[in-house]
Nucleic acid binder design. Structure first.
Length: 671
DNA sequence: TTTTCCGTG
């Protein structure tokens, strides 16, 4: 599926041509050359190379299907920008994109991935000394800046999909602005959608050139509601049935905000279309969201059977991450779930918000990839104009900055407030992050990285709290267990609970559950998978566990071991120690999560220590059906009108005082 | 009391 999941359609628009097997190698080379020359960007090859030669910063507006992600790197390579052992870097906000684009470009150049063309993402480095074109995630390039502050090994850096404004893209652009002042020979290319191009150009100053390249797509008719709806889920169902009864054949893609809405629509379509005998053709509704196991996700790529119309009901995963061929109709509900973070309460939330105009354009475009299409927007044209924001708030302005600030400190950037950013983060987010890092002992009272713990925390690719736990585990003798717990906490959707098989799944999951809580339950699952299950997918499937998540956890554990070894910690020695007891492991967790303590109330809710806020155990937690007194939790999130804690483990009150005497000294009595 | 948008090191 990697050749179909990408963030830019220019990777797979022409894979069809490559499936003509059994042709001679020479013909294939000629065919690839011809396909490359048919892409819209090819006409601009010379002009682009001239602009890059003469301007330090170029903003490239490349529409979907223009070929920018795959071709620009090759043009620069062919033109000699990689002589003198320099390379070209091209960043992507998503791992799958870095992998699949690298695979495509390697094929076009005629090399193995990892030779002239390679990629680098967390836990996977597919590059070698001969790599000249390197695709990597934006977070990975930021990591590289830690060891090579001037990016001396690169002659050109391309920041692709910059309009998505991931937090790492924003930080990279801020640092790259400094780097290009010191390196006259470095070129920076920022690839962006139309609406944001001007903002990037003005950030980099008057010498910046803007270039626009047309794309390869078909016209899409936009249809609005004449009156607003107060129930977009029901309206989605009706619109699907209307399209089915009135419009010519072609598959449908409907955008909704979450799993629950998606399941409602899928069920209702099944129910209502069987009673609706107007047409012979049937409807085949398929759900798509990130939490769905992979074997079910890939069903959306199967062509619909004869006389059947496929309806993919998806979250915004289908907006950029997943591209489905053959979509003619798009239904856009006009909303999206966005993550926010409140530094005062330190609580994250997921809130249903109006989509941005930029996202609405992207959604509509999904209908015109292979044929002219039609997009039904479930809001009025007035709302589209007046209510929708132009672009959504950049991630750096709505997220917990503790991790990113730790990394910036490690880059030697002391005064975060003075950074020249496109949109700087609000002061309270920065202050909050500094306070969190100070309470861990990662920063001293002057805001400087502490030599022992802070410097080491910055090296680990984990949440600061979890980094702290892992580093402390060495002293407590439970590093082997903690590496596995940290790995399991870094992957998502370990447990699989299908709607129609829920009881059976819950019975299987119960076999791993322990009364102490979620963290030790995760440890049990890891042990069972690697020892009894021998890492097999059948074993995982039988136990209703997500095989892909478990395999990733194993690879994360191994990578963590390598990071710790690099920090001079003897990992192999520690794994041969006698097994640490349960109390030691929990005490170790408390050393990192001491600020996340709560007490259970008689009604089953929890009161957070400090804020006194009332929260509920999330139904995914083992504490949902168990009782406790004192607990620590690893996540708190507000969903709708309720706040939940997840990753819960029972503790003793005294362990909090023991783990953080200074922190709890001032608060004693308030809990 | 009955379940989570998408990403990243």
């Amino acid at each position: 599926m990697s050749d179909r999941i990408n963030d830019d359609s220019d990777v797979d628009t022409y894979t069809g041509g490559l499936r003509t097997a059994s042709v001679s190698a020479q013909f294939k080379v000629a065919s690839i050359k011809r396909q490359r020359e048919m892409l819209p960007i090819f006409r601009h090859r010379q002009a682009l190379l001239y602009i890059v030669e003469t301007s330090p910063v170029v903003v490239l507006i490349g529409h979907t299907g223009s070929g920018k992600s795959t071709q620009l790197t090759q043009y620069l390579y062919e033109e000699g920008w990689t002589s003198e052992s320099k390379s070209i870097a091209c960043t992507q906000p998503r791992r799958v994109a870095a992998m699949s684009i690298a695979a495509r470009v390697a094929q076009e150049i005629g090399c193995q991935v990892g030779q002239t063309v390679g990629y680098s993402i967390r836990f996977e480095d597919m590059t070698s000394s001969s790599t000249r074109i390197k695709y990597l995630t934006d977070g990975m390039l930021l990591r590289e800046l830690l060891v090579d502050p001037l990016l001396s090994r690169y002659s050109v850096v391309i920041i692709d999909e910059a309009h998505e404004r991931s937090i790492y893209t924003d930080i990279l652009l801020c640092i790259l602005k400094k780097v290009i002042r010191k390196r006259n020979d470095l070129r920076l290319i920022i690839s962006s959608a139309t609406l944001q191009a001007e903002e990037f150009a003005s950030f980099f100053g008057p010498d910046t050139k803007i270039v626009s390249i047309e794309g390869k797509s078909y016209p899409v008719d936009i249809v609005y509601l004449s009156e607003p709806t107060d129930n977009y889920v029901e309206r989605t169902i009706q619109t699907i049935l209307d399209i089915h009864n009135e419009e010519p054949e072609g598959d449908i893609l409907a955008f909704l905000t979450g799993r629950e809405e998606i399941n409602t629509v899928v069920e209702e379509i099944v129910n209502r279309s069987t009673t609706d005998s107007n047409r012979q053709a049937r409807l085949l509704p398929l759900p798509l969201y990130a939490g769905l196991p992979q074997d079910q996700q890939i069903r959306i790529f199967d062509p619909a059977p004869e006389d059947t119309r496929k309806v993919v009901v998806a979250t915004n995963i289908a907006e950029a991450s997943v591209t489905i061929d053959g979509i003619i109709y798009v239904i856009d509900c006009g909303f999206v779930k966005l993550r926010a973070y409140d530094p005062a309460s330190r609580i994250e939330s997921l809130v249903v918000s109006p989509v941005s105009k930029a996202a609405a354009i992207q959604r509509a475009g999904r209908a015109g990839r292979t044929n002219p299409g039609k997009c039904f927007r479930l809001y009025t044209s007035q709302a589209a104009e007046k209510v929708l924001p132009d672009v959504s708030v950049p991630e750096i302005q709505r997220t917990n900055l503790a991790g990113p600030i730790l990394q910036l400190k490690s880059l030697g950037i002391e005064n975060i407030a003075k950074l020249d950013m496109i949109k700087p983060p609000p002061t309270d987010l920065v202050v909050n992050a500094l306070e969190i890092l100070f309470s861990f002992g990662a920063l001293d009272e002057y805001g400087k990285l502490t030599p022992g713990i802070g410097e080491r925390m910055a090296e680990l690719p984990l949440d600061p709290m979890l980094s702290k736990v892992l580093l402390i585990s060495q002293n407590l003798g439970c590093m082997d267990q903690m590496m596995k717990i940290a790995a399991m906490m870094s992957v998502e959707n370990v447990f699989y609970r299908p709607e129609n098989d829920r009881t059976a799944a819950e019975m299987e999951h119960l076999k791993f559950t322990v009364d102490e809580g979620d963290h030790l339950t995760l440890y049990n699952v890891y042990q069972a998978f690697t020892v009894r299950g021998k890492g097999s997918s059948k074993w995982a499937h039988d136990k209703y566990l997500n095989y892909k998540s478990l395999s990733r956890a194993v690879s994360v554990r191994n990578q963590l071991a390598r990071y710790l070894e690099k920090l001079g910690i003897n990992v192999t020695g520690s794994t041969s120690l006698p097994t640490a007891n349960v109390e030691t492991i929990i005490k170790c967790l408390v050393r990192g999560y001491f600020a996340n303590a709560a007490i259970m109330q008689p009604d089953g809710s929890f009161k957070l220590v400090g804020s006194q806020k009332i929260v509920w155990p999330h139904p995914s937690s083992v504490m949902y059906t168990r009782s406790a007194e004192w607990v620590i939790y690893s996540q708190v999130i507000e969903l709708g009108d309720k706040t939940y804690i997840l990753g819960i483990t029972k503790i003793e009150r005294d362990w909090l005082l023991e783990a953080a005497p200074e922190y709890y000294h001032v608060r004693r009595g308030r809990a």
